[in-house]
Amino acid sequence: MPETLILTRTPATATNGDEFQPVIDRCLAGEEAAYGLLYQRLSPLIYRLNYGLLQNREDAEEVLQDSFEYAFRNLHRFDSRKAAFKTWLYQIALSRCRNKRRRKWLPSFSLSQGIYQEIADTETPLPDETLALSGEQKAVWSALKQLSPKLRETALLRYYEGLTYGEIGEIVGVPAKTAESRMRLAHQELKKILQRVA
């Protein structure tokens, strides 16, 4: 189970005073409003990460629900000495995004057209929900979609969340140095794609 791995792995950056610890304590004491507070503060971040990774609104919403349901049910297992709460939650969401992507990809691969399906996906017209984006933003959105999943994960956590490479490594399950080289690659790839478009 990926969740078990997540919970037992010792992360690179341990934090003692987690900003969410007081709220978590209130949750564990049975205060329902505290769960609402955690959800209110963190759900937009988790949703945006899911949507950036999956680029599908329905999937992103389902992963959001699953992630918080798991996190709330397993809140007693969260250890602030091992990881920041936000990092823990990102790990939970990321593993679900990966599972979702894998489940969607497998059927098309079994029809011996997996690779082509992926290529075709990048060429399909953007869904209506990106209509509100400017021309430049649409190009970036489409470029992000063309990154490999590994690079996209790192790029989103860095560009959007501004996380450190140590934190990114913790979340995606690689050493900080690997997160750094993935970020370098993602940045070069994005530049190349956008230059081609321009």
Binding site: Y47, Y51, E61
Partner: peptide, 21 residues
């Protein structure tokens, strides 16, 4: 990239409430 993510991944507070487990 940051701006794009913020704009594309926008979700209304009402929708978030509906999705709350």
């Amino acid at each position: 990239v940051r701006e794009t993510m913020l704009a594309a991944g926008h979700i209304t507070p009402l929708r978030l409430v509906q999705l709350r487990p």
